[in-house]
Simulated assay, not measured.
Amino acid sequence: MDLRKLMAGVLILCSGCGLAIQTHENQDISGNGSIINGTPVEERVSDAAKSVVLIEMHDIQGRPLTICTATLIGPNTVLTAAHCFDKTRMRAFGGFNVIFTNNYLKTYGNALKLKGLRMALHGSYNSTKMYDHDIALGTFKGEVPEGYEPVDYDSDKAANYAHQTVYSYGFGKSQDYTGKRGERGHEYVGVLHRGVLKVAGNYNSYSDRYFLDPSTSVFICSGDSGGPQFFHEDGVLKVIGVHSAVYGTKLDNGFTSCKGRGQVTKVAPFAQWIRETESKLLTN
Rank of each mutant, 00 (worst) to 15 (best):
R4H: 15
R4E: 15
M7Q: 04
V10A: 13
C14N: 14
S15D: 10
G16K: 03
C17Q: 02
L19H: 07
A20M: 06
Q22D: 06
T23H: 10
I29W: 12
I29F: 15
I29V: 14
S30Q: 03
S30A: 08
S30D: 00
S30G: 06
N32H: 06
S34D: 14
N37G: 09
A49M: 11
L54E: 13
L54R: 07
M57T: 14
H58Q: 08
D59Q: 07
R63L: 01
L65N: 00
T69Q: 10
A70H: 02
T71R: 02
I73Y: 04
G74N: 13
V78F: 03
V78P: 02
L79S: 05
L79F: 10
H83C: 09
F85A: 10
F85Q: 07
K87S: 01
T88A: 01
R89V: 08
A92C: 02
G95C: 02
G95A: 05
V98I: 15
I99A: 02
I99Q: 03
F100C: 07
F100S: 09
F100P: 04
T101R: 07
T101W: 09
T101M: 07
N103W: 00
Y104N: 08
N110V: 03
L112Q: 10
L112T: 11
K115Q: 14
G116Y: 07
G116E: 09
G116N: 09
R118K: 11
M119Q: 08
A120M: 06
A120H: 06
H122T: 01
Y131W: 12
H133F: 14
H133S: 15
D134R: 09
L137G: 02
P145N: 01
E146D: 09
G147E: 05
E149I: 00
D152I: 04
Y153T: 03
Y153M: 03
D154E: 10
S155R: 04
S155I: 02
D156N: 15
A159C: 07
Y161G: 02
H163Q: 12
T165F: 02
T165D: 12
S168A: 15
Y177E: 05
T178Q: 11
G179M: 03
R181W: 12
E183V: 12
H186V: 15
E187R: 10
Y188L: 14
V191N: 04
L192Q: 09
L197N: 13
V199Y: 07
Y203F: 15
S205Y: 11
S205N: 14
S207E: 11
R209G: 07
R209N: 12
D213M: 10
P214D: 13
S215T: 15
S222R: 05
D224S: 07
S225G: 12
G227Y: 00
F230A: 04
V236G: 04
L237R: 08
K238C: 13
G241Y: 00
H243D: 15
S244N: 12
G248K: 05
D252N: 10
S257G: 11
C258P: 06
K259V: 07
K259D: 08
G260T: 09
G262M: 04
Q263P: 06
V264Q: 03
V264E: 04
T265Q: 09
A268W: 12
F270D: 01
Q272K: 13
Q272F: 12
I274R: 01
T277L: 08
E278H: 00
E278G: 05
K280F: 10
L282K: 13
